[in-house]
Design a binder for these strands. Structure first.
Lengths: 160, 160
DNA sequence: CGCAGAATGTTAAGATATTAATCACATTGA
DNA sequence: TCAATGTGATTAATATCTTAACATTCTGCG
């Protein structure tokens, strides 16, 4: 027999992945041409937009797990793009700020990046893009899933 | 002065990334509990749905670049999930097929995975999900971008 | 036939993702 | 004050991503 019922799964994760690939194809050449990775660019823009911030915040906003972030920040400092320092009052916290060169580079690349975005917008349609983004925004708000495969006795509503 | 104009960028890639994170949070625990990576699971389901296929097709459908795929397939074969063999007539082509254990595992996990999906659907709404997916589908069709940062004479507005 | 060029995978090297364990410092409470 | 606990970052180990360079095998054509 053919195989599983496979009821034409929706494969939401796959679609999100493919869509992101299609979009990144527009930005990648630009980033490559200036020697930045996607992650580095996300961090640079964050820092330029909102000023210095601690590592944990960057991790949250840029969707980078802290173990990855550690290395990325080290390389970015080595490349002269940022400064790393410890918070005076709580030395666990790592404060990250843009260097002069980092700021310059960011502001040089930003308009080009925006141009890429406008290209996408032009192809896809402005309203559709707005709609898509608002849907994505909602999706991001999904409540954390309840554990299904643990030995713990399934959370019940009583636990809330 | 504050910083760049930063006109509240839309950050489409970021949203796609975050949305995918929110969604994967539902599937990750399941996959971890059976010792599969996201990529391995994508491949298993592909093979179960559509039968044996060559590596290049897997790469396309599962959104995995061939250099990554090489290693993933080696590990999956070592884990007894799949078989790898060369096409008799064109020995460049690598034919990948599900092993018995691979098939069993896949069919054991599939319903649980579907359950995760239905959870998401329940939270997000069926129609909205349909809409989102159709938008993502369109986005995937974006034409390949035109090179902007090459030695080619920078596009000007006149080119639009 | 024979060889240039295309197609398909693989290696290599460096960067990031992922999970678990650990380190250093902070905070709390007895 | 000190032990217990918590928090933020790092280390470790393995898997995957990315780009470039190779290695093979095919294909088409002179």
């Amino acid at each position: 027999m053919p195989t599983s019922s496979a009821q034409h799964q929706h494969r939401l994760p796959q679609h999100l992945l493919r869509a992101r690939e299609a979009v990144m194809a527009y930005f990648r050449p630009l980033l490559n041409s200036v020697g930045l990775t996607e992650q580095q660019w996300r961090i640079l823009r964050l820092l330029d937009d909102r000023g210095e911030m601690e590592a944990g915040v960057i991790a949250d906003l840029a969707c980078i797990l802290s173990p990855s972030l550690t290395g990325i920040l080290v390389r970015m400092e080595k490349a002269g793009l940022i400064h790393r320092s410890r918070d005076k009052v709580d030395s666990r916290r790592l404060i990250v700020s843009l260097s002069l060169e980092g700021r310059q580079l960011t502001r040089e690349v930003a308009p080009l990046s925006n141009a890429c975005y406008r290209q996408i917008e032009a192809h896809f349609g402005e309203e559709k893009l707005e709609l898509l983004i608002s849907l994505l925004n909602e999706l991001e708000q999904l409540p954390a899933p309840v554990a299904v495969t643990e030995d713990k006795p399934q959370l019940t509503e009583a636990d809330l």
